[in-house]
Computed example of a mutant assay.
Amino acid sequence: MTTMTVKTPWHLWVVGGLALLFNAIGPYDYVRTMLEGSAYLASAGMTAAQIAHYEALPIWVHAAWAIGVWAAIAGAVLLLLRRKLALPVFAVSLGAFMLNMLHTYGLSDGGRIMGQQMAVTNVMIAVILLVLIGYCWMMSGKRVLR
């Protein structure tokens, strides 16, 4: 039995590199928030009400946040390594992100507190993760990811 080697398309490097750069924002923000707390949040321009909202997040939201940001980075690295595992890892990131959105917009007053700009940012994050999942699906189908 022979195995066929599929050439890596140029766009995989572009998509993977951009995914890595974009998704690096999440862990950066997460680590700074965990290490510096309200001082970092204030330096990022958050209001006292927004900082209080972040400080009151339940542990399961913190867990989902951590899983989401680190899975997004792992998904980008796996995509650059041409691994099929990138798809389910990006899906885990999206699932964790959606748990955060459930808390923010459904189980708390976070949507009002965080404001419209954060809502737009959240939609953008969800769309980017969906596009990355679709891209991984397409590349898996073409046997680019192994």
Rank of each mutant, 00 (worst) to 15 (best):
Leu78Tyr: 03
Cys136Tyr: 02
Ala64Cys: 01
Ala126Leu: 05
Thr104Phe: 06
Trp70Ala: 14
Glu55Met: 15
Ala74Tyr: 03
Leu107Lys: 02
Leu80Ser: 12
Ser108Gln: 04
Gly68Met: 14
Gly26Tyr: 00
Ala96Trp: 07
Val144Tyr: 14
Ser140Asp: 11
Ala56Leu: 09
Leu18Ala: 13
Val31Pro: 04
Leu130Asn: 03
Ala126Ser: 09
Ser43Ile: 00
Gln50Ala: 02
Ser140Lys: 03
Ile51Trp: 15
Trp65Glu: 05
Gln50Met: 13
Met4Trp: 04
His62Trp: 15
Phe97Cys: 02
Tyr105Ile: 00
Leu80Phe: 12
Ala24Arg: 01
Ser108Cys: 09
Val31Ser: 12
Gln116Ser: 10
Ala71Thr: 01
Tyr54Cys: 03
Gly37Glu: 09
Gln50Glu: 11
Thr121Asn: 13
Leu20Gln: 11
Thr2Lys: 06
Gly26Trp: 03
Trp137Asn: 08
Asp109Pro: 02
Arg112Glu: 15
Trp137Val: 03
Val15His: 08
Ala66Gly: 10
Ala91Tyr: 04
Leu21Val: 12
Arg83Ala: 14
Met139Val: 00
Ala76Ile: 01
Leu20Asp: 12
Arg112Cys: 06
Ile113Thr: 12
Ala86Thr: 04
Ala86Ile: 13
Met114Gly: 07
Leu145Phe: 08
Leu21Met: 10
Met98Leu: 15
Met138His: 03
Lys142His: 07
Ile73Met: 15
Thr104Gly: 11
Phe97Leu: 12
Gly68Phe: 08
Ala39His: 07
His103Asn: 13
Val127Gly: 06
Val131Ser: 01
Thr121Arg: 07
Ile59Thr: 04
Lys7Met: 12
Trp137Met: 08
Tyr105Met: 08
Leu35His: 12
Val15Lys: 00
Val120Met: 14
Ala86Gln: 00
Trp13Lys: 10
Ala74Asp: 08
Ala86Phe: 00
Leu78Ser: 08
Leu81Gly: 04
Leu94Ala: 03
Gly95Trp: 05
Val77Tyr: 15
Val77Arg: 07
Ala72Leu: 07
Gly106Pro: 09
Ile59Tyr: 11
Leu129Arg: 03
Gly95Ala: 08
Thr2Glu: 06
Asn122Ala: 15
Tyr30Ile: 14
Gly68His: 10
Met1Pro: 03
Met34Trp: 10
Thr121Phe: 12
Asp109Val: 04
Val123Gln: 11
Met46Arg: 14
Gly95Asp: 06
Ile128Met: 14
Gly106Cys: 07
Leu107Thr: 02
Thr5Val: 13
Ile128Gln: 10
Ala49His: 05
Ser38Gln: 14
Pro9Thr: 01
Trp70Ser: 15
Met98Gln: 05
Leu80Cys: 08
